[in-house]
């Protein structure tokens, strides 16, 4: 909720935002009506994934930056539809 409030105030002040969060928080974030949300398929405390997975961390940031640049309206996106680990 803290980051949601920060995002709302930054947008009011003319700064575009994108939130990267674990999908566990989807309802809490979307119910705050935030402009751009990128959800990742990882447990709480690991919004960019597992440690020492630098290539994926960078890919997630690039995806978030793409949303920041290209989004035309409020939207929520998922980093990967398929799980990045075998289930």
């Amino acid at each position: 909720m803290s980051v949601g409030h920060l995002a709302r105030i930054l947008e009011e002040e003319g700064i575009a935002t994108v939130v990267i969060a674990t999908e566990v928080f989807e309802k809490r974030l979307t119910s705050m009506t935030l402009p751009r949300i990128l959800l990742t398929p990882y447990p709480m405390g690991r919004p960019l994934g597992f440690p020492k997975q630098g290539t994926e961390h960078k890919q997630i940031i690039v995806e978030a930056l793409n949303l920041l640049e290209a989004s035309k309206d409020f939207s929520t996106h998922y980093w990967k539809k398929e799980r990045p680990y075998e289930v």
Binding site: A7, L10, I15, A16, T17, V18, V19, I20, L48, I61
Partner: peptide, 10 residues
């Protein structure tokens, strides 16, 4: 001069 902000909640 920040124009775009990446925010990460935990």
């Amino acid at each position: 001069g920040i124009e775009g902000m990446i925010l990460v909640p935990v």
